[in-house]
Simulated scan of single mutants.
Amino acid sequence: MPTTAPPHSPGDALAAQQRRVAGLLAAAPAAALPTRRLPAAEHARLVGSGHFPAYAAELAWTPHQVAGHLRDSARVFTARITRLRTEEDPLLADFDPTAADRVAGYAAVPPLRLLDELQEAQAGLLAAVRGVPEAERARTGRHATDGALTLGDVLDFLPGHQRDHAEQLAALLR
């Protein structure tokens, strides 16, 4: 019988941040998504927080690009969770969120379709996170550039990643 997740599990924390992202994007007019840029003061505030010190280039994105990134990263992390749960010590490919062709490709997706795809990908990610029994958190894998990691490392990263981008969206959409 699977163990029950703790009351403040990564799934609960992830769900809270996903709701925040969805609320911010739903409140913004779709026409504003592709055009808004982060004000300099907000950029300076965010550049040293969360995962942004390693990924400061993400702070140049529009809300549309943030939504595209969250859609893609939800898909990537869902696949990683599945592989970590079903394979022995899998080698996980690198995911370069700032690859020029990836970021440029977001513009080809109409805002409303992108938001639908984001919602679907986020739901899949949340289901994958919530499906992990506590006993599997120690399962291991290797990231192509970052080295050894555990399923628990991935689960613990995700709420903060969503929080960081929620903060970015809040600043972009003020």
Rank of each mutant, 00 (worst) to 15 (best):
E88D: 15
D94C: 05
A74I: 01
G68I: 01
P110M: 09
G105W: 04
Y106D: 07
D146M: 05
P159W: 02
L118K: 02
H143T: 13
T98R: 11
A108Q: 14
R139N: 11
A121C: 15
V109D: 04
L151Y: 11
A123N: 12
A104K: 06
D96Y: 02
L70I: 01
T86F: 04
E120G: 14
D89V: 07
E117Y: 06
G124D: 15
G152L: 00
R75T: 06
A128R: 05
T145P: 06
G147W: 06
L112Q: 09
L91Y: 13
D72R: 10
H64N: 01
T98S: 15
V132G: 04
L151A: 06
A100H: 02
H69V: 00
G141I: 03
L115Y: 09
D116S: 14
R83M: 11
A104G: 10
A135E: 15
L149F: 01
L84V: 05
V154W: 01
A144S: 07
A138T: 14
D89F: 08
A121G: 11
R80D: 03
R142S: 13
E88W: 00
P110L: 04
R102Q: 15
A104T: 14
A104E: 10
D72M: 15
F77K: 01
V132E: 08
F77R: 01
A79L: 11
H64A: 12
G68R: 00
V76I: 14
R85K: 11
L158P: 01
Y106H: 15
T78I: 03
E117P: 04
A79M: 07
T150V: 13
L112E: 11
R85Q: 14
P97W: 00
T150F: 12
A148K: 13
F157N: 11
E134K: 13
V76F: 01
H143A: 05
A79Q: 11
P133R: 12
L155K: 07
L84S: 02
A74M: 05
G147M: 10
G152Y: 06
A135W: 13
T145K: 09
A127K: 12
A127Y: 08
D153H: 12
R83I: 09
Q122R: 07
D94H: 10
G152W: 08
E87G: 00
R80Y: 05
R142K: 13
L114M: 12
D72N: 13
S73N: 04
P110T: 03
D101N: 11
H143K: 12
A148T: 14
D153Q: 08
G124Y: 04
D101P: 09
R139F: 08
G131I: 10
G105V: 05
A128M: 08
A121W: 14
D116V: 14
E88N: 07
R142P: 02
G68H: 03
P110G: 15
Q119F: 02
R80N: 03
D94F: 10
S73G: 10
D96W: 04
E120S: 14
T78L: 01
T150L: 00
G68N: 02
Q119A: 15
L114K: 03
A127I: 07
F157M: 15
E136D: 15
G141Q: 11
P159M: 03
P133N: 13
